[in-house]
Design a protein around this nucleic acid. Structure first.
Lengths: 198, 198, 198, 198
DNA sequence: GATGAATGAGAATTCATTCAT
DNA sequence: TATGAATGAATTCTCATTCAT
């Protein structure tokens, strides 16, 4: 009997090692060799779990989207402004690990590498998030809770862009914890006043 | 002396050609050969003007920042909310050419290529923009024109992030003109209500 | 003792599986993995029976020669031209299975794989066949049955080359059954007239 | 101005070097690196002239067919048996260089490497040669110069197979000059008697 | 004996950079 | 100055073979 291996666990381990390697060297300077080293296995072994660098990258992409969704999607219908703002706050609080991978993901999924589908996946993903916000805004408009002049559809999408902007800047630039907290606070206050009835 | 002018012009021409090549092939699939072809010169000639691909990339970076500044910095002290909102609107209206380069810049200046300095350059750049907004917010707070609870410093920076987010999403995803117009309109309205006195 | 029988049977089974794999993928694209799959065993098990790909290839080679000999060697001393021609005819009639392996054998036993010995094995083999024809020709010359000017030694060897040429072309190019039959018929007629007394 | 190179000559030189390398190492053990070394250039330079190993191999193939044609095709309509036999003799006399490449060609163009087309190219090639022989036989039959029972069509094709067999055996096995001369002599005599009127 | 996971030498190919002309 | 041929380090991927279970 050969070594018994949890293949799924191995895949996860390799993906983690890849991310570590990417952090160390940047995506493009990370070779399969370096990933293998980081994972403590041989180059050839890598190919037993991911048949190409492309596939490995897609594995990371999937993990990335899953993580993003876990952070962003739980925004269920909010029945008050405060509930909504609380949801938004959740979306803006990202841990250090996720933060540091942001530039990596941008590099990894930039145009020359996407098989055309990455951008579309992102687009779909953000549209889904936007839909959640649209529903929330519309619900609150319909219940006369927020400003009636709001165009839920348009605001939903642009709102997502703005949130993403905040998160991206946190990822790319090292805001200290305190600064970021103030920034989030100000943004939330701005949003709150911006959608409020008066 | 005229030679110097030619040399500078040549550099500019090469940078333009590079951008065209990047647009065609994506940054990473663009070889020095392709850039030379695009510029109508020989590969060796490229090296007479830029001593490495890194330097060429930095040249593009500088041009990029210059362009960004031209669009964003003109926000001079606004003495009214409407004046400020008008400035913001200017910042959000980007032409097709600039739009299409956004993904390219992201790819080109991603971590593995920056000699460490790209990110810092970006950071400095956005801080400068943030400062302009801070000044504006503070001026309007001091004049009791906008909500007094606003923390100008924090809002200035996060505001820049949000604006960048909107622009980035426009660059990465193909919003149709109409949608983007509505989005900008909603965002501006949100901002306006968000900073307004009441 | 029964174990030995199993082991030998296993070797035969593996060789058969190899040939099937070679037919499917061509010799060079056939990996040990594919051979194992085809044989319904694990890759490691292969190595219990053949210590290397080289050895496995030699096993096939031996089987190949055995098959060739079975077809060609039975040419026992012919006492008449017609008897000889009948023998030749036997040598030229090869079944579909053997036909389809011809290109494979050529690929498998080509210079880069031979440890020097393949070519020599072939040479020896063809010399043996040639010897049989030499004997036949000489016998018929001595009995004044065929043309006395024939140099049995030289003709024996060149005759084998010609027969091999016919068989090889059948193996490499898809002659339809009818065409091949006519070709064999013409060749035999040519040989017959060529060695006949007048 | 860069080095001025005769590109066509360079291609020819590289093809020659390839053949030398193939002779030394066998086709499959010959890497692009070894070919480059043999040609006295760098690996990368190879790719300036042949964009892949496949293309290089095809270059060799073409040269091979050109050489074969030069030796075999000149068989113009022969108006007598002796003329025909002389032509056949020409076809069987191959120089040492050509001889030694025969195994190489077989290896290089074996099934797993042919893009499907090699075998067909060969088939077409031999069919062309066969046509020339068919014409010759038919002409001589029509003029009552050779045996009227001959089926020119079938004989033409099988004749080519036999000649190829002789040449192949010369290529694969080292017949000494004297032996080969006797063999050719016997073969020609056999053919002559075989097609003769009586 | 049997298995198949792990290995790593080796191969084809790319491309930034150099340099002879 | 301008050119583009030449270079070779670096990269992805393959596969025969080994070996722990």
């Amino acid at each position: 009997m050969p070594k018994i291996v949890d293949k799924e666990q191995m895949k996860v381990d390799i993906l983690k090692a890849s991310l570590n390697a990417f952090l160390k060297y940047g995506f493009h300077k990370t070779t399969m060799e370096k990933i293998a080293k980081e994972a403590g296995i041989a180059k050839g072994t890598l190919y037993l779990y991911f048949s190409s660098k492309e596939e490995l990258t897609q594995g990371i992409s999937q993990a990335h989207f899953a993580q993003l969704k876990a952070r962003l999607i739980p925004i269920q219908l909010a029945t008050s402004i405060d509930a909504l703002i609380t949801h938004v706050e959740q979306a803006l609080i990202i841990n250090d690990e996720e933060t540091q991978f942001i530039p990596i993901f941008f590099e990894a999924f930039s145009p020359s590498f996407h098989t055309g589908s990455f951008i579309e996946e992102y687009e779909t993903f953000f549209d889904e998030i936007a839909d959640v916000y649209r529903e929330n805004f519309q619900y609150l408009v319909d219940n006369h809770t927020i400003n009636p002049s709001i165009n839920s559809h348009a605001l939903g999408r642009v709102f997502v862009s703005m949130l993403d902007g905040i998160v991206l800047h946190k990822g790319f630039f090292n805001f200290d914890k305190e600064s970021y907290t103030s920034m989030v606070k100000e943004a939330l206050a701005l949003f709150k006043r911006g959608i409020d009835l008066n």
